[in-house]
Amino acid sequence: MIRRESAIVTDPVTLSEPQPTRLVRIEAFALDPAFAEAFEGAVGAPLPAVGRVTDAPAGPVIWAEPRAVLASGDAAALSAALSGVAAVSDVSGAWRRIDLTGPGWRERLMIDGLFDAESPGFAPGCVAATLLRHAPVMLCPTGRDGVLICVAPSFAADLRAALAR
């Protein structure tokens, strides 16, 4: 068999699955200063810009939709704090996390993917919602040479097995 000098260097990656944490979905009734102010007061961090992730005391805040973000915290408390400006729902069980770390993390996201994870602009602080191996995911590069993949639990086992191959 001829062994070509392969154009692909398959760098190693490791996978780990942290435990689910308290996660809420906050949908603003309107994106106005009243909401932005109430949000910052309740969550302890400003609203992230489109496609961005910011840090808050209870955990990262992830921009998800034009008027919805995912944040960490207690749903009842946040709901009360944002009453009148936003709807808050507990979605702790709706996302599993897969941490993909190692030098090959960008390459791994290109396999059966649609998104340009190899672009240097895709860096910590960004979030990209896309499809990966048929599963809807959110991708957040971390500063540790890796990426946090958020995926619905029903797809998680398949996605984890596919990423590990």
């Binding site: 489109v50 496609g51 649609l114 998104f115 990209a128 919602a129 896309t130 499809l131």
Partner: peptide, 10 residues
């Protein structure tokens, strides 16, 4: 307008 150019499949 939010995510930039993306594949039709999304």
């Amino acid at each position: 307008p939010h995510c930039g150019p993306r594949a039709h499949a999304e």
